[in-house]
Design a protein around this nucleic acid. Sequence first.
RNA 1: GCCCGGGUGGCGGAACUGGCAGACGCGCCGGUCUCAAAAACCGGUGGCCGAAAGGCCGUGCGGGUUCGAUUCCCGCCCCGGGCACCA
Length: 843
Amino acid sequence: MTRRYDPCAIEEKWQKTWESERLYSVREDPERPKYYVLEMFPYPSGDIHMGHVRNYTIGDVIARYKTMAGYEVLHPIGWDAFGLPAENAAIKSGTHPAEWTYANIEKQRASLKRMGFSYDWDRTVVTCDEEYYRWGQWIFLKFWERGLVERKSSAVNWCPSCRTVLANEQVLAQGECWRCKSTVEKRELEQWYFKITNYADELLDGLEALPGWPERVKAMQANWIGRSEGADVDFVLCDAEGRPSETIITVFTTRPDTLYGCSFFLLAPEHPLVHELVHGTSYAGPVAEVVEAAAKETAVERMAGERETRGAFTGRHVVNPVNGEKVPVWVADYVLMEYGTGAVMAVPCGDQRDFEFARAYGLPIPPVVIAEDDPALETLREVTGRVVEDVAWDHAYDGPGIMVQSGPFTGMRTGKGGPGVDAVIEWLEARGSGRSAINYRLRDWLISRQRYWGNPIPVVHCRLCGLVPVAEADLPVRLPRAVDITAGETLADHPEFYEVPCPSCGGSARRETDTMDTFTCSSWYYLRYCDARNDSAIWDAEKTRYWMPVDQYIGGIEHAILHLLYSRFFTRVFRDMGLVESAEPFTDLLTQGMVRKDGDVMSKSKGNVVAPEEMIARFGADTLRAYILFMAPPDKDLEWSFEGLEGMYRWLGRVWRLAVDIAEENGCASSSPSAGDAASRVLYRETHRVIGKVTADIERFGLNTSLAAMMELTNAAYDYRAGTPAAERDHALMREVARTLTLLLAPYAPHMTEELWSGVLGQEGSVHRQSWPTFDEDAARAEQVEIAVQVNGKVRGRITVPAGLDENAVIDAALEAVASHLEGREVVRTVVVAGKLVSVVAR
RNA sequence: GCCCGGGUGGCGGAACUGGCAGACGCGCCGGUCUCAAAAACCGGUGGCCGAAAGGCCGUGCGGGUUCGAUUCCCGCCCCGGGCACCA
């Protein structure tokens, strides 16, 4: 037993012991409550970095704590192993993506073990393993059966650098590819989709059932789904002579109550009717200019803020269903084909964009909703027909107000979601020219990728039978190894892969050569952990019933709308299939902050990376673990500090020496007159106060403050030892302090505490199999309390009184303590906060 | 423009539902031990005034509620993030 804390001498020894004893293997135990703690699994691009260390340490502390607190804890790990980085790395180094991927997995596995994480390694999943991805294909087939798979042609995001399409969620705000940051292009392509929009409502409403998720993540998801409620309104198109035709153009609007203010009508430049409307007319030229200019514009330019809107008249009109008025149809480049119907009713008095367009092209701006304090209201209040064609305003008004010039609705109170909205919808519905409707910003999830290193889509294209899914019995469609991606090959270059007989008619057919988005692999891995080695089913529903949902999920905020939304979608589909019970996969979510250095996120390109392995080599995994938890609350960014790491090493050394000293002194015969003296009572109380504080702090993720509390206990023990001669110390108490501190610290510094437990303190079994210390509230209660005394809001004195002293006695003592401040004044009032302070109001 | 965070000593950060602002750590200063250093241990450390006792100021800014506000309310400023011609 050395007096010096030497992590190198103990950490790897215990890691081997834990592994050979399978200390962290778990099984369903219906007798005990379960707890499922999960950290987002890593992508195997190189070795683990500080972000992983932080993520996994947080999870490991929770897992170990919950185990000690009596739960059966599922704490698994795996790898998100398909994807582009492997291909890019393979091209660069001339290897195969599989080789690169598996080599990195081994490297990371060793590093995770070196950190001492308590994973159940028997449940590991690797998404590029055939035994895993075959179930991903199975999911595809099940989604197909449920009508959740669609192949359609549409304008999609194309990354020229990654040479593949991307989902909307994978395009950043600036129109950049989420992986390589190249500018994304729009292309019209036929692709595979998962119909996540079928679940748009559920996914939005379900957020309310997630109180354990950060507001910010829920807000981002709600924003992304973007539900808006309103109405679809049918406008009848007039022919070139101005007579109503058979063609109806429907628009979506959130403000049907402003229909009377519609003075023109807009089509997106990409709208399929545009060409037909102007073909062969004098309007064709100017309209074509607008259409072509819009087509040339990139997403970046489109989003670049201040731009001039362009538009052109088509020469045609539509009929406004509420008043039969004919309004001109224009093409305008601020109308998006992707949202709503690609056609918009323009109400310039109520919409700023329409307002600006009207001013630019000299179109009328009749007012239909007026604020109650607007003087114009007086003259228009009773007018049902239109007498004012233009407003004197300098901007549109979209606030609440009174409807004017609005036929039978004139005089009605209205606004967004106001009574006027419902009244107009009702009116439209009664006449069959409109109906209430909901629109979403969320698009279906584009899942096909024109890349090799992914899960093959299990479908065959047959000229006769069309799209034919591969039979379940024929799964998996194996990803062939012999594809030379360094030569730019994909599956489409390998006839031996794609030339297959049609599963339906047996004729010659072509296998789909696209692979699935990696996010399809990560959308269900947490379910597979529940039954990772099952080779006859995706999982046994009994097992997911026991473990699911994940009680605590921990990972980066960058997945707020990608992985976290997709997983919620998958889980809801599985629920509908009867494969799981809960509709939500993750009960509580913690989004951990980033690890920074010199103000920037650690990254290779910034050159400010601190490698975990180097820190482990110098200070040990326990120091690194405790340090990274101590420096900031888990959800906040953390600024790396080498001095801070050294400080943590010093404290662990202090705890170590304390335990060693106590163990050595234990043999000394205690003269024991001290038992029960003031100093021991203080230390005993402090021990219990800290047990309570650490427990409460872990429960609310205050991992930094829980360590601070343990430091306070350490300091108290040193104070006691400094103030009490060895012969007079209460050795039983000292031993209790050492034992308690070891148990409390076990989740944070698992190796050191294991060594202290059995090696130094001579206890039986693994410290990680012990029960969490019980907090005795009575034991923590102080005998004497210090009370602050305020006079008119300022602290003017302090008194120390026995806890629980009668209130009047406390006031007397308090008044005496601040007597000098009360001279010549009259005490008007006293407020007592039990055990904390007395506030005296004097005049 | 809309929606989320955040602003506290030299630094990282504490302060539970309105109750002693600055726990804990880093850094810095001083001391003990030592030939010396390191390590370790002990003490100090928000600012200003003061020899001290003590006083005044202090949680981005300005108001308000309250015996009492880092915490609640109103109005701003700054920083970070998300969304954005979404009809």
